[in-house]
């Protein structure tokens, strides 16, 4: 489903990704771990098409198509979703309005009917409840004044509503209390399905206790330095990245 081959990318002339290879099949959940500043968020931005991230070499295939030539909104329409490490605030734009605009844009792209306000309200209410999000939060401007945890939950709500085929979660577990972490994990597990793939960027084993990944990768120095099964996360928790980084040096 997602094929990343020898991906090199730079920001403002500075090389950050130095040959990433990664392959994710439909229905699979992969975890990406790695030290701060190793390029995890950069990878997520390159995949979602953010401006300012230059691809210097390599290719990315999504369902066999060249992902990198698509505009960000076209990638979204093709089913790619990024839960941001730092969700953005948009003053004056109600969360509900934003969600509906996004969902209808995607539905239009897929040739489906747009939902009217009432139909949409039903969809949102149900999904929001499952994530412990109340009506008052939906009425507020998007992410404005939300606590760190509320922002992350709001990303999860968008994930649940937009139902992407490839979801990248960039540290969605950071800043969550223990209960919220469980809610998020349950949300992710509920979305697991044979035709949906997920790339979960995280620093913590505790999330992977709840979401058992098919594969775990270590991204460091702009490359995947080690890959393994879910037991790799446990090993990292114990030993840190030192050994892997040492091997690469």
């Amino acid at each position: 489903m997602l094929e990343i081959r020898d991906l090199h990318a730079s920001v403002e002339g500075q090389a950050i990704l130095n040959g990433v290879d990664l392959s994710v099949g439909p229905g699979e959940v992969h975890a990406v771990m790695g030290p701060n500043g190793s390029g995890k968020s950069t990878l997520s931005y390159v995949l979602s098409g953010r401006e300012g991230y230059a691809v210097d070499r390599g290719e990315v295939l999504y369902d066999g198509r060249d992902l990198l030539e698509l505009e960000p909104e076209e990638r979204a329409a093709a089913g790619l979703f990024l839960a941001f490490q730092y969700p953005v605030e948009i003053p004056g734009v109600g969360t509900m309005t934003f969600l509906r605009t996004a969902l209808n844009a995607l539905r239009r792209g897929r040739g489906e009917n747009e939902l009217d306000a009432m139909q949409f309200l039903r969809v949102v209410r149900q999904k929001a409840r499952a994530l412990g999000i109340g009506d008052d939060m939906l009425k507020r401007a998007l992410n404005v004044g939300f606590s760190g945890g509320e922002k992350k939950r709001n990303e999860m709500l968008q994930l649940a509503i937009l139902e992407p085929r490839l979801a990248i979660l960039d540290e969605t577990d950071s800043g969550l209390d223990i209960d919220a972490l469980k809610v998020v994990a349950e949300g992710v597990n509920a979305l697991r399905s044979p035709d949906r793939a997920m790339l979960i960027i995280t620093h913590y084993q505790r999330l992977l206790d709840h979401i058992v990944p098919d594969r775990v990768h270590v991204l460091a120095k702009g490359r995947i330095l080690r890959s393994g099964g879910s037991e790799l996360a446990l090993e990292l928790e114990e030993k840190g990245y030192g050994e892997i980084m040492g091997e690469a040096a």
Partner: peptide
């Protein structure tokens, strides 16, 4: 970018 990532 946030909006565009969501398909808008």
């Amino acid at each position: 970018f946030y909006c565009r990532q969501r398909g808008i």
